[in-house]
Amino acid sequence: MKNIIMDATAIERALKRIAHEIIEKHASVPIYLIGIRTGGVFLAKRLSEYIRSYGQIPVLNGTLDITLYRDDVAMRTGRAIVKATEIKFPVGESYIVLVDDVLFTGRTIRAAMDAVIDLGRPQVIQLAVLIDRGHRELPIKADYIGKNVPTSADDQIKVVLRESGSSDDAVYLIRKGDL
């Protein structure tokens, strides 16, 4: 069975808090929010709306597909389509916040940083995630965290959002034994 660990209200509250923290910490404008496909894209959009409404500061959105930067291509199933990376602003000297739904091993973020750096030399890269579930395999930590969730390595975290067609937002923790 699935345990709801965050409902829609909790997710909204967490994202609003992160938006405030980004406004407080931001070093320069505009703020560039880059969502990592696929889970981070919708979260980045929501965050940018909150930041605009609270901070009255310019926010630009981008989307990053990190398929080509993964270190596990030989293990991939099928042949994942490489979706477009849409970053319409110059990355050089910019203040970038990468946005993802779940932080786990850190490999996705490593790939995302490589991908961003290949586009230019940002001044700062920060990381915002909705869930940090631990079990890092690389020296990576998030600057903004919606919720820390202790898990075992076999567990799954599932983030469902309205934008991808579900009736409501929620984060589930699925224990291995529950499957």
Binding site: L68, A74, M75, R76, I157
Partner: peptide
């Protein structure tokens, strides 16, 4: 590039998260 990418990266299973 796409043809090479799709031809090489096709073995084994992998799941996200």
């Amino acid at each position: 590039m796409s043809a090479i990418y799709h031809t090489i990266g096709e073995e084994h299973g992998y799941t996200d998260n």
